[in-house]
């Protein structure tokens, strides 16, 4: 159930993110989600794209440092308390989440949370047992 996220090392300087988005645009790679974790000197750009293999290849070819990580995309109903329900399930199951971020505006009634976890498959099972939808790659338009 896990999907591939790409993490790119970004030096903090004007225009660096633009260089990455230009590269992706030029190679016709579509962004599904994007998040940046920053420090004073650099940031980690985390992206989910429609073709992660191709994206990783063009990023590396451009000289960027990039790596892939497995993450879960979990559906969260677009209603008050939607995220709360998910977090309650995770807390009850004693699951530690390394980090998370959201995707809105997908073509159904749900928002999606991207979760990075030590054991994505195990957590996917726990969530499904509680009736929470874990989106597969196809659902998110990922090849």
């Amino acid at each position: 159930m896990a999907i591939k996220q790409i993490t790119v090392f970004l030096e903090n300087r004007a225009g660096r993110l633009l260089e990455i988005t230009q590269l992706l645009a030029y190679n016709k790679i579509d962004l599904r989600a994007l998040n940046i974790a920053e420090t004073t000197d650099y940031g980690l750009l985390r992206i989910i794209v429609d073709d992660s293999e191709k994206a990783l290849a063009v990023l590396k070819e451009s000289g960027a440092i990039a790596t892939t990580t497995d993450v879960l995309a979990v559906a969260v109903p677009n209603i008050p308390g939607g995220l709360n329900t998910l977090l309650q399930v995770l807390a009850n199951a004693n699951v530690d989440v390394s980090y998370m971020y959201s995707i809105f505006g997908h073509a159904d009634e749900n928002a999606y949370m991207i979760l990075q976890l030590a054991d994505a498959d195990e957590v996917a099972g726990i969530l499904k047992n509680k009736g929470i939808v874990v989106a597969d790659a196809q659902k998110l338009g990922i090849n």
């Binding site: 996220q5 090392f9 650099y42 440092i65 390394s98 990075q116």
Partner: peptide, 9 residues
Amino acid sequence: MTPEIFSDS
């Protein structure tokens, strides 16, 4: 930065 030092964490 090198690929060896870099990680998602």
